[in-house]
Amino acid sequence: MLEIDKINVITKDSKSKILKDLSLKINDGEIHAIMGPNGTGKSTLSKVIMGNYKYELTSGDIIFNNKSIINLSVDERAKLGIFLAMQDPTVIDGVTNSEFLKTATTELTNERINYFDFIKNIDKCLKDLELSEDMIHRSLNKGFSGGEKKKNEILQLKMLKPKFIILDEIDSGLDVDSLKIVCHNINDYLKENKDTSVLIITHYPRILEYINPDYVHIMTDGKITKSGNIELAFETEKNGYNGINDVRKKISNE
C-alpha cells in the first residue's frame, strides 16, 4: 500500500530539517500508529504524504501502490485514495458542506452525481456520526465545535471512500462519547473496506483502545526510533517518551 523510503524533508520557508531518513512500510489492511512528543514531525509526515506545499522533500521516495507519488499534486494523491483527516480542519466561509462534498465526489469519481443516492448516503452518515442535519448546509467547518469538526472529517471519509487514511490527532478536542462515535464509525468503515490501511498519529493511547493498531511506532527528532505493538503505546504513556528508553535499556541489561 504505502512505502516511505528514507525521506528527508525541510520546510520551504525556513529550510529547517523536519524529517530525517524516515522509513515506514504499511501494507494493505494494516493499521499503524505513530506516537511522539510535540514538534517531532508527526503532523509534518502526514502533510508530506498528502503533498502539502509548505514542505520540500530533499531525498527519498513515497510509493503508493507501487507508484511514486512525490511529483503528484495534492488532488492527484487524493484521487489515488489517500485521505488526511486533519488535526485542525480549515474553515472555508461561504462553501457549504454539501457543495464541498458534491464537488469532491464529482471530481474523485469523474462521474455525475446521483443525487438521490448522494442525499441518502449523507443522511445515513450524519445519523451514524450523531451530527445534526443542518450542518450539511453550513459553511465548511465555520462555527463548528471541536467535536463537530472532527466528526465532519469522518463524514467526508465515509462519503469519499479512501483506500489509505491518515488520522492526524483525530482524538484531540474530542470528549469520551464523541471519541467512541468517531472510532466506531472508522471501525465500521474498515470492516466494510478490509484492504484499507490506516496511519494514526496521536499523543495518547486512548484512541488505540478503540482502533486496535497492528504496529505502534515512536517518533523522535524526525525519525522512527522504536516500533512494537500496542504494549509500546501503554508503556509510553506510563513512562513517558524519555522514560521508555530507560525502561527498555534496563530490560535488555537484565
Partner: peptide
C-alpha cells in the same frame, strides 16, 4: 486565497482550478 484553504479542498480530490472557483464563489456570492 489562503494556501491552507486550497490545500484542504485539494486534499479531498478537488483540482486546483475547481478549488479556486469554489473560493471565488464563496467570496463573491456568499
Amino acid at each position: 486565497f489562503k494556501e491552507d484553504s486550497l490545500f484542504y479542498l485539494m486534499s479531498r480530490g478537488i483540482s486546483y482550478d475547481t478549488a479556486i472557483k469554489l473560493l471565488v464563489s464563496s467570496l463573491l456570492i456568499n
